[in-house]
Nucleic acid binder design. Sequence first.
DNA 1: GATTTAGTGTACCGATCTGTACATATTTGA
DNA 2: TCAAATATGTACAGATCGGTACACTAAATC
Lengths: 185, 185
Amino acid sequence: MRPNKRDELVRKALDVFYREGFNATGMDKLVAETGISKTSMYKHFRTKEDIILAVLRLRDERFRNWFCRRIEEIAEGPKDRLLAIFDVLQEWFETPEFKGCMFIKAVSEFQDPENPIHIQSATHKQMLLEYVEDLATQAGLQNPAALARQLMLLKEGAIVLAVMQGNAEAGRDAKAAATSLIAAA
Amino acid sequence: MRPNKRDELVRKALDVFYREGFNATGMDKLVAETGISKTSMYKHFRTKEDIILAVLRLRDERFRNWFCRRIEEIAEGPKDRLLAIFDVLQEWFETPEFKGCMFIKAVSEFQDPENPIHIQSATHKQMLLEYVEDLATQAGLQNPAALARQLMLLKEGAIVLAVMQGNAEAGRDAKAAATSLIAAA
DNA sequence: GATTTAGTGTACCGATCTGTACATATTTGA
DNA sequence: TCAAATATGTACAGATCGGTACACTAAATC
């Protein structure tokens, strides 16, 4: 058992929770889909909530890594990168596995602002905001914080509408709007 | 029992589902919170899903009524009304009962695009988009459809971030961004 | 006044929920 | 090779899930 069962569980649970939802996925289904025994799961985690938190940590790490890296791959200057956000977003929407933002869904299912799942999801959004804020600052624009917040509105809105409409059109609209906002800044 | 029990159920169920979530609210909790017997509920509705659909219909009717009426109250010309969208949004965020968008949450819990709950939620967003599109058309702007879609991105993004951040700041950011977009159109 | 209608309360069905107990198997390292 | 560490499978507890059966009650209508 070299490749830690704990990590294997978290990786596989991520897929299931993302596809099926958190409350809709019972522990028995998790056993069936991961091939890991329930006994093992509860040796690594005290509760289902702890598993969800670990899943969200992995998702945050993977997503931010991919997202930022991809932006830096396809654009050079910080100003171009602000716009590239929306190209990368579009790429994501066009992925066949795209099923929306895991953190928006987590907050929808765990609404209590004191709930650790809720808090951790909010932190993810905060960290992405800070990344965009850095880009805006590097771009030498006035009021980079305000621009970053506006671009994040477009990003979140695009995710929601891409899910609702079942296509990636929202990505193109977001890029067009971002172009205007960046030009105005 | 003049005031129909069915409507009473739907009204009260709306509050519970909005506060607690759909999957997290069992039928027994619905009985406890509405004071209506389970037998009665299942005489009016065949399944829990049917209750949810009725709740979403009421929410759609109430929300669109309030939203559009309020916009038309606080602004006169169609161009001013496009901006007023975000003042009304802000009002909503500042409401103590604000707990995000019921339709975004519904789609988060019922992800299957073929699910009637999912479809009905998407329809709500579509109808709001059409209302904003009408405003943009009346304002005589070029490409009103594109502007309307961009403003809706801001609206959905603001809702998500208002929930995530636990405050109404996103409303102000959305209004600032909308001002830029409308000016550019 | 009798009958239909709408609602109630309770008890229950089988399934599923999170989580545990326990005895067994497999792997790992000394 | 042998012991410790990690797995596993099964069975189950106690609660809750959506939904039904049934006997009863209040009210409206004829």
